[in-house]
C-alpha cells in the first residue's frame, strides 16, 4: 500500500507542488502543506477507492488542509479587486506586455475560491467535474467561480498592462498599434 500511495502521489508531484506554492506563496510553506497533505492522504488512503480519480482526491486533501491552516492561523492575504465585471476590449493583446510570472502573480492575488478555480482549470487542465470534487461544490459553481475569477483576472492584467503603456482602446501609448 505504501509503494502504491507513493507512486500515485509522485505522478502528480509537480502539479501538487505548483498548486501548493500558489496557495501559500512561499516554498517552505508549500513544503509544509505538502507534508501535511501526504500525512492525511496516507492515513486516509485505505478509504480511497481504486479506479476513482486519485488526482482529484489528493488535491481535495491539499485544499482542505490549506483551508484548515488558514482558519487556524488567520492568514488569508488577498488584494481586494474591483467587483465590476465589464468585459475587456483588448482580447489577448495584454499578454504581449506581461511576463508569465506577472500573470501568475496576478492569479495568486485573486481571492479564494476564484484563484483555485482558475489555477486548477487553466493551469492544471482539470475538468470541471474534477474541480468540483476538489473544491467540494457543484459543477455549476465551478463554472461561475471560473467566470468570475477570469473576469477579475482580466481586470488585474489590464491594470498591469496599462502601467506598461497599454491603452484600453487597444493601442499603446506612443503610437504603436
Amino acid at each position: 500500500m505504501k509503494e502504491r500511495f507513493e507512486t500515485l502521489v509522485e505522478g502528480h508531484l509537480d502539479s501538487l507542488h505548483r498548486f501548493a506554492v500558489s496557495l501559500t506563496r512561499d516554498r517552505d510553506g508549500a513544503r509544509d502543506l505538502l507534508h501535511d497533505t501526504f500525512v492525511k492522504g496516507f492515513e486516509g488512503y485505505h478509504a480511497f477507492r481504486p479506479g476513482t480519480n486519485f488526482r482529484a482526491w489528493i488535491f481535495a486533501i491539499l485544499v482542505n488542509t490549506f483551508r484548515t491552516r488558514v482558519r487556524d492561523t488567520g492568514r488569508h492575504r488577498h488584494v481586494a479587486l474591483d467587483e465590476t465585471n465589464e468585459p475587456a476590449s483588448e482580447g489577448d493583446v495584454v499578454f504581449e506586455l506581461l511576463e508569465g510570472t506577472e500573470i501568475l502573480e496576478a492569479i495568486e492575488e485573486l481571492p479564494e475560491p476564484y484563484r483555485s478555480a482558475v489555477l486548477l482549470v487553466d493551469r492544471e487542465e482539470m475538468r470541471y467535474s474534477e474541480v468540483a470534487l476538489v473544491m467540494d461544490c457543484p459543477v455549476g459553481t465551478v463554472m461561475s467561480r471560473l467566470h468570475r475569477g477570469r473576469g477579475l483576472l482580466r481586470q488585474r492584467l489590464r491594470g498591469l498592462a496599462q502601467e506598461r503603456g497599454f491603452q484600453a482602446a487597444g493601442k499603446r501609448v506612443g503610437g504603436e498599434a
Binding site: D92, I103, L104
Partner: peptide
C-alpha cells in the same frame, strides 16, 4: 473575447516543474 483571453492566458501561464 473571452475565448481569446483564455487562450492567451493558457499559452503564457508558466507551469514550472
Amino acid at each position: 473575447r473571452e475565448r481569446d483571453f483564455v487562450r492567451g492566458l493558457r499559452a503564457r501561464l508558466p507551469r514550472p516543474d
